[in-house]
């Protein structure tokens, strides 16, 4: 078991080093930093001095190492557009994205598992078929179209919910939350629903197929033979065994929720890191792009690693070290 944890850890470090290399190359090869620093009137001597100061004459590996150690301390340079440290700009936007991601993940998990269980138990009912058909349409629609569609219905036609922004937020130190104000909550509904819809259908389909498999197992038949009620069979025996693979997939989906938040945040002008990232691409703001990349890869790697550990803890079959 220790071996497989170690193997995962090494893999995670490898991923981060590779992403670091990409981020570093962005700084090194996209645009000349000396051009950005020195004005029009510069001499060859100035250029040489700045190159020396910035360490641009060092060997590649040394520069890469310097970059990594700076990044580990949170120093990713200064945003070209805002003139402030890139990490600072990103970090103040993190709460908005995390809040949106967590709310939509919770929504997708709860409703996905409930609907999945329902459609697995009542396989033949027309409600199940309707839910499945709607989910198929939901999967094939691009996220941004769903967002626009919802804005049209609930903001333009009905006027019930705001179409953009975060509403009023309450600050707790460096964290800001919209969960405590009425406008904040109202602004959260549409983006969270849009972002969670895809994951919702994914989890629902997974739960449904896993649960249908479980319900065919011998121990379920045995439980039925013992005369247990349908309710006890479904919820005490079947659901527990269904949820093991669901934990993994759902955990890994949190990563993609954060990434797909880019689209939702743009549609709803939600002031999170995704919207910041899109703007930084439009204006070629390299420090912001690189910081976003580093931050999100750390999140991804941590989530993947945590899910792996969780999986090892839940499923005893994987503990002999042979698990892939």
């Amino acid at each position: 078991m220790i071996y497989s944890i170690l193997k995962r850890a090494v893999q995670s470090v490898f991923v981060l080093l590779l992403v670091g290399l990409v981020a570093f190359s962005m700084f090194r090869f996209v645009g000349d930093p000396v051009d950005n620093l020195l004005g029009q009137e510069r001499t060859e001597a100035d250029i040489e001095r700045v190159r020396q100061e910035l360490g641009l004459n060092d060997p590649f590996v040394v520069q890469y190492w310097d970059f990594l150690s700076n990044a580990a301390r949170g120093d990713m340079g200064v945003s070209f557009r805002q003139g402030r440290p890139a990490m600072e700009v990103i970090l103040e936007r993190v709460p908005a994205t995390l809040e949106l991601a967590l709310v939509s993940a919770t929504f997708a998990m709860t409703l996905g598992i409930l609907l999945g269980i329902y459609t697995a138990i009542h396989r033949k009912s027309w409600i199940s078929n309707a839910i499945l058909a709607i989910s198929l349409i939901g999967v094939s629609l691009p996220t941004f179209l769903i967002g626009i569609f919802l804005i049209y219905i609930f903001a333009v036609e009905l006027g019930w919910l705001p179409s953009f922004g975060r509403g009023d937020v309450v600050d707790f130190g460096w964290w800001s939350t919209g969960l405590l104000t009425w406008t904040g909550l109202k602004s959260l509904i549409l983006p969270a629903f849009t972002l969670g819809l895809y994951q919702l259908t994914l989890i629902m389909r997974l739960v449904r197929s896993e649960m249908s498999e479980v319900l065919k197992q011998d121990y379920i038949r045995f439980a039925r033979a013992r005369g247990l009620s349908e309710r006890a069979i479904n919820f005490r025996h079947a659901v527990k065994n269904t949820l093991i693979p669901v934990v993994t997939v759902a955990g890994l989906q949190i990563g993609s929720i954060i990434a797909f938040a880019i689209i939702t945040e743009t549609v709803f002008q939600w002031p999170g890191i995704g919207l910041l990232f899109i703007n930084s691409i439009q204006f070629v703001d390299i420090p912001i792009m690189a910081s976003y990349l580093m931050l999100i890869s750390v999140m991804f790697v941590v989530i993947n690693f945590a899910v792996d550990l969780l999986y090892l803890a839940i499923d005893p079959r994987l503990r002999d070290g042979k698990g892939a």
Binding site: L18, I262, I263, V284, I286
Partner: peptide, 25 residues
Amino acid sequence: RIADVQLTFPSILVAMLVFGIAKGI
């Protein structure tokens, strides 16, 4: 292994990143 690392990230994110870098160059 490279393929595995890339699969860790959603493909739309990879596409955005490549687009951003190429735009910078």
